[in-house]
Amino acid sequence: MQLASGQQVQAGRNIAVQMRRPDRLRAEIRSTRRNRELIYDGKSVTLLNRAQNFYGTVNVPGSLDQAMDTASERFGIAMPLEDFLRSDPYKDLLHNVTSGRDIGPVTVMGVACEHLAFTQGNIDWQVWIDSGPIPSPRKFVITYKDEPGTPQFTAIFSDWDFTTPLPDFVFKFDPPPGASKVRVKEVRESVKPHQTEAK
């Protein structure tokens, strides 16, 4: 990101994702002072701001794909790396790609990978795919070409686990003690001329 002085600095965070297809997700996004969670139990999406102990819930039934679409279209909710949670990541990722190339074999955190690079409208993106039996992504970079200083997003996938069973309770939201329920604004609503909501 760019400081007011114009200097570029990096900010980091950790994301832990638990997913069970087709319709369960729990994601925790953590940095030193912030912590938010997003939970989808197949019926509703709950957002939890753990640092301030606020949570909000919206009903978005359907598959995870449908829930993600509704969450972003109506509520402006988008998660970093959500491309990889789609039911067909390949199709979705390549949807707007205008060109792509195979850069060749590269090792990422000790894992042999194939480095692929793509370009499309506002961004360039690269992905490093595990060359082993499970072709999981190991690294992911997006370059925002249309923003000042062409900032980059970099993710290292550090711990894939395809075997641990994830029972329902993992995806059940119980408000932490003392948590306050707050409203989740619709995106369109927040840019409309002002309106007061019914209590």
Binding site: R21, F157, D159, D161
Partner: peptide
């Protein structure tokens, strides 16, 4: 089941 994809994302 994709569990614990710990992304150290900058």
């Amino acid at each position: 089941m994709i569990g614990c994809a710990l992304a150290v994302a900058s």
